[in-house]
Design a protein around this nucleic acid. Structure first.
Lengths: 237, 237
DNA sequence: TAGTGGTCTAGACCACTAG
DNA sequence: TAGTGGTCTAGACCACTAG
């Protein structure tokens, strides 16, 4: 009912784009023209347009005008968090190991550290109410004197574990999704046959200066842990 | 150098959040106070805050104030498009089949159509310069009289194929990522051993009214097609 | 030179919150 | 009742574009 004017204008233009009345590359009316047409101030028009810009419907060339964008249907949003997946909610975690070790080459490369630097290893098994669903391995560069509190690690997500050192707001995360065949060790842990396909999700945690402050991978049984992603158009609306 | 004032204010507040000076749940100064402090108009302050809101740093309770949010490190952005993956760029596509068929139960359920409705099936193999990398199977509800142009299908992504009927702006996409063991047929096509693990990405295309207008799945050889996702904080900055 | 978008102001009125 | 954010205005000056 009492929709603000800027929302109405935004929706009208969006509708024209969706219906194809305005097409990719088309220039839309200038802000001044729109202000006249809708009998509002230019600032109100700009508020409408800023939403469309944010959602990717239009883009601006300063000095020229506003144009209809190219629909980028390849951008998606995915929610991932080792504790709360869509299909299986983790009921229990089992801490297999917390230790300070010499890193393997793989870990060294991923953490971008020197050879003699030690790392903290954390190994967990995540259980749903129906049994083990995922095996989780995380590595953090070891700083002398930084205590490792096992209790804190039990139910924490990776960002939370690393966050003791920095604000959760200042870290970035990178996921890498792939597959692998279940090996002997993992098969035993997850109670599956050897050779079964597993979903592998690598997590890299970066700080504000793009320094790697954590790396790990989680391998998941397929049946319980599919990932879902949504195209980002219209999502924010 | 000539950064706008609203950017500076935004960055100052963001920095305080990242450094932990302002913590989750804290209320920040009111818009009027900030306007006084920075000696700008309230509208300028609001512009700064709107960025922080959009990026998830703060949230607003009307009538009360603006508050520091909870960092949601589980939201990621992933780019996916069957033609341009990160590791393997598709050089060539091979069209195996374009046909109108009676759908299987799986297809029927996913397209949410009735039993007697026919569907268009499109089967492709995607090749990089090093050989086959993915096998792709798509289904579209068949409308009488809608021509299927093989040429158009060859290099198109799924949204592009469906888009002839609607604007690309009015569709939504849903991905589902999982794994599977390579079966006989697919093994032959991708030239791999049976039982090898494959990444499976289901794509569901929805129109404006949330009606399914396309469903398909693409299975990818692991070595060449890892997916990468990034946490969405700081991405837009 | 006329027109475009980018930034910014100083005000207004509103619904809502909370003492 | 004083204060908060939400909406909106009518103006200003700027850098930039393109004829």
């Amino acid at each position: 009912m009492g929709k603000p004017v800027y929302i109405k204008i935004m929706e009208e233009i969006k509708e024209k784009i969706k219906q194809g009345i305005l097409k990719s590359g088309d220039m839309i009316q200038s802000e001044n023209e729109l202000a006249q047409i809708y009998d509002v101030s230019r600032m109100t028009v700009r508020k409408s347009l800023s939403i469309l810009i944010h959602e990717g419907y239009i883009y601006t060339i300063p000095g020229k005008g506003n144009y209809i964008g190219e629909p980028n249907q390849n951008k998606h949003i995915i929610y991932f968090d080792e504790m709360n997946n869509i299909d299986a909610i983790v009921e229990k975690t089992e801490l297999l190991e917390v230790n300070v070790i010499k890193p393997s080459v793989e870990v060294m490369l991923n953490l971008q550290i020197e050879k003699n630097k030690k790392v903290v290893i954390i190994r967990r098994v995540l259980h749903s109410d129906e049994g083990p669903v995922a095996y989780d391995e995380k590595y953090i560069p070891y700083d002398k004197g930084a205590p490792i509190v096992e209790k804190e690690i039990h139910y924490a997500t990776f960002p939370e574990i690393v966050a003791s050192k920095t604000s959760l707001f200042s870290i970035k995360k990178e996921l890498r999704i792939g597959v692998m065949k279940s090996e002997k060790n993992i098969s035993k842990i997850l109670k599956i046959k050897e050779g079964e396909p597993l979903l592998v999700i690598e997590q890299k945690i970066l700080n504000d200066k793009n320094k790697v402050i954590g790396w790990g991978k989680i391998v998941m049984k397929n049946e319980c842990c599919k990932l879902t992603a949504f195209s980002s158009y219209n999502q924010e609306a």
